[in-house]
Nucleic acid binder design. Structure first.
Lengths: 144, 144
DNA sequence: GCTTGACCTCAAGTCGACTTGAATTCGTAG
DNA sequence: CTACGAATTCAAGTCGACTTGAGGTCAAGC
């Protein structure tokens, strides 16, 4: 049986052992057994961790992520709720697109104060339009 | 002079007074004067707050946001860095798009375990490809 | 002139997501 | 068989972004 111990999972996923233990604590992932004291993880955990990383990128809290793709890949939430989260994501994508464009404008526009540049104002307004709460967001502390 | 006091700014922006004071503390926004004890804000603060909201949505830390659009709308960062942030945003947008598609797939696919569904796996892989740290993300506690 | 309500300051508390550290236990290589 | 390194548990600490609460100030309307 090709089980992975925590260091292996950490190396392959980039998630620290301490974080993996924490994820197991809160029931976000599960180890399949123990070899002595050591947790043994199945290979599917790597895919789950990718999903978790995506969820965090989108600003979902860990408990929301758990609800979206249950421990075994089973959707805990009703379809409608999932679609609603997808809709949130759509809005967020629009917001980020506008922010990206605004950022590029700021980088390139020679005007001294953007606050008075009509292009700038329009970009910001566009962004503001559809920004209704993406449910929640949490920390993503970056890989040091 | 049509200055706004903190309650007015709060009402128009949806940002709580306590948060506005905090933003001023850390130099993210500035009030133009005082009327007695009361802070008076210029109208431009509303636009700034939109920008701040966008930045938070994207997961930028407050100090990063401050650096991107200086207090007066002056870009504190060199163009290259701004473009790099825009690139980060692009990657993030791709990730979120993949997550959105994955979510819709999970909502609609009748398979009992997605972990074995090839469509699902492909979506997750696609998402994993270009997800290199959006710099940092922080809390967005939602409007209660 | 007095009340009222919106504002003020400052210190301390909260929350999620981890990290850190100390003390301990394994399993494998030599 | 022993030493070593990798893993374990558990409590406590950290960080950013605010919020909360106590106690105080002020200007406008009656």
């Amino acid at each position: 049986m090709k089980f992975l111990d925590i260091g292996e999972v950490s190396a392959r996923s980039g998630v620290k052992p301490s974080a993996l233990r924490y994820y197991e604590d809160i029931g976000l992932i599960a180890s399949v057994s123990r070899h002595g004291l050591r947790r043994q993880f199945g290979a599917e955990v790597l895919l789950q961790l990718k999903l978790i990383a995506m969820g965090k990128l989108a600003g979902f809290a860990l408990d929301e992520i758990a609800a979206m793709f249950g421990k075994a890949g089973a959707p805990v939430l009703p379809r409608a709720v999932l679609h609603q989260k997808a809709d949130d994501l759509d809005r967020q994508i629009h917001g980020l697109t506008a922010l990206r464009d605004t950022l590029r404008h700021v980088a390139d526009c020679p005007a001294p104060s953007h606050m008075e540049c009509p292009t700038f104002r329009r970009l910001v307004e566009v962004a503001g339009k559809r920004g209704r709460r993406p449910s929640r967001r949490k920390a993503v502390p970056r890989v040091d």
